[in-house]
Design a protein around this nucleic acid. Structure first.
Lengths: 243, 243
DNA sequence: TTTTCTATTATGTCTAGACTTATTTTGCTG
DNA sequence: CAGCAAAATAAGTCTAGACATAATAGAAAA
C-alpha cells in the first residue's frame, strides 16, 4: 500500500472538512447530532455556502455525515465507510513492485460459454466467445493467472488481433472503453491447473478478483484473476483523494 | 445484463458527464486525445464553467479523463479505474441478506501483541492490547470470524465495557470515530481454529479482510475478518454514486 | 546552442446570489 | 381529533464572474 502525502495543498474546502472531522473525532459533535446548517457554517468559517457545501459533501461521501434536504446534516450513526481500490494494469502492478514484467498466453480459442459465465454476462448459454488464459510473471515468477472471456460483438477489431503476442487486457482497456464494471473478491482453493500455472500446490488459497465490463452494446469481457498465493490487494480511505 | 436505471435525477452535471462518456465510448474522442477546454464546453452545453468543471472532475475521479492545469484535459490512456467497496457492519450485511443475526464472543483477554500485529499498528512488540475473537452468525450458521486487537489508549471508555455482551465493532464504530483506515483483501487456507469456528474443514480457502483504523492519538484497532467459504465481496463502478 | 526569465493559458478554487426540491412544521378544516 | 394544505426550511444545483496556480511555450540572455 502506497503512502499518502500530506494534506493536499490545504484549500479552504479541505480546511473546513478537516475542522468538521476534528469536531467529530473530538466528540464535540456526537453520532446522531444535528450539526449547524450550511449557512451558519459559512458565516462561522467566513466562506461561501457553496464552499461549505462542497466540504460537507466530501464528508458525506466518506460516510461520516448523513445529509438530507430540509432535515439537515447529522453525524452518521453507522459510518458506512467506503474503501476505494485502484485497479491498475497487471504490468503496472508488477513494475511498480520493481519486478520485470512478462506474460505468456497458454490458451486461446473460440468456445461456447458454460452456464456460470453465461449467467454472469447475461448471454445465452453456449454462445461462442473468445476464451483465453494468460499467465503474468514478475521476474519470471508467476504473479497472476488470467482467465478471460471476450465478447467479439462488443469489441470490434478483435478478430484482426494476435493475442498470442499482445496483452488482451491492455488492448481492451485502451481500445474498448467501458461504461460500467463490476468487481468481486473471492477466495478459492487452487485447482490443478491453477497450481500448475502459478507454480504452487493444489489446494493453496488464492485471492480471486472477478471483473466484468459493459458498454452500450452489451458485455465486453469477464475475467477471473487469480493472484499468486499470499498476495494482498489493499486500499485506504479516510481522506478523499480527488485530484 | 443487470438493470440500468435511468439517469440519476439527470442534473445538468450528470447530463454533461453522460455526453462526454458517450463521446469517449463512441470513440469520437480517443484515448490520449485532448478534449475541448472547459470554457468551450461551457458554451457548447450552455452551462457555466463551474458546472462543466464538476462534470469533468467526476469523470477524472472515475479515471476516464486526465486533467492537468494549463495542459488541458485528455482521455485517459490507461483508464485506471477505481472500485468503491462499501464496508458496512456485519450485522447489516447479514440482515440485508435476509438472515437473522447473532454473534458469540469466543475469547477476550488482554494480551501482548505478536510481531505481525505490532508492525501493522506501529506499536512496540509485546505491548498489551485487548484481544478478542467473535463469530458472527446468519440464521445460526457462521458468517464471519472476527479476530480483533484494540488499543485501549486510543479507545477511552473501553475498560468499562462488557464485550462478552456487546458487539465490539459496533461499539467502536459508534463511539471511537477514526480519521483513517486501511483495508486489504487476502486469501488464506483455514487453520484448525478457523475451521472449527466457521464449521468448515481446515484448508478451505477463506476470503480475509484486514482492516486497521487510526485517529489522532494512534492506532485504534486492527481486525482480521474471515468470511465463510464461498463468500464474495463485490463492488461496482462506472457511474459515480455520490448522494 | 542551452539556460533562464516571462507571458500565456487551462484548470483549480472561491464567492454571492438565485432558483429548485424534498421534507418537516404548522395551521386550517371537517 | 385526524387529515390535509400551505408555509418554512435546509440541502441541491446552477450561474457569472473573479482570482490563484501550475505548466507550457516563447523570448531573451548567456
Amino acid at each position: 500500500m502506497t503512502d499518502r502525502r500530506a494534506g493536499p495543498t490545504s484549500s479552504k474546502v479541505q480546511g473546513i472538512a478537516a475542522e468538521v472531522r476534528r469536531r467529530i473525532v473530538e466528540r464535540e459533535w456526537r453520532q446522531g447530532d444535528r450539526i449547524p446548517d450550511e449557512a451558519d457554517l459559512a458565516i462561522e468559517f467566513d466562506a461561501a455556502r457553496a464552499t461549505v457545501n462542497k466540504a460537507l459533501q466530501l464528508l458525506a461521501d466518506e460516510g461520516l455525515l448523513d445529509r438530507r434536504r430540509r432535515a439537515g446534516t447529522r453525524v452518521a450513526v453507522d459510518p458506512v465507510r467506503k474503501a476505494t481500490f485502484t485497479i491498475s494494469l497487471v504490468r503496472e502492478q508488477v513494475e511498480h513492485a520493481g519486478m520485470d514484467y512478462s506474460h505468456r498466453v497458454v490458451a486461446q480459442r473460440r468456445s461456447p460459454i458454460p452456464a456460470d459465465i453465461a449467467e454472469r454476462l447475461g448471454l445465452p448459454e453456449g454462445e461462442v466467445l473468445v476464451h483465453m488464459r494468460t499467465v503474468h510473471y514478475g521476474d519470471g515468477r508467476p504473479f497472476q493467472l488470467e482467465d478471460r472471456w471476450i465478447n467479439p460483438r462488443a469489441a470490434p477489431g478483435l478478430d484482426r488481433l494476435d493475442f498470442w503476442q499482445l496483452n488482451a487486457n491492455e488492448w481492451l482497456v485502451r481500445n474498448i472503453p467501458y461504461l460500467r464494471a463490476d468487481f468481486a473478491f473471492a477466495a478459492e482453493n487452487a485447482n490443478r491447473r491453477d497450481a500448475r500455472l502459478l507454480r504452487t500446490e493444489p489446494g493453496r488459497a488464492l485471492l480471486i478478483l472477478h471483473r466484468t465490463t459493459w458498454n452500450d452494446i452489451g458485455p465486453i469481457t469477464t475475467v477471473r484473476l487469480a493472484f499468486r498465493p499470499g498476495h494482498r490487494v489493499g486500499a485506504e480511505n479516510g481522506r478523499s483523494d480527488s485530484q
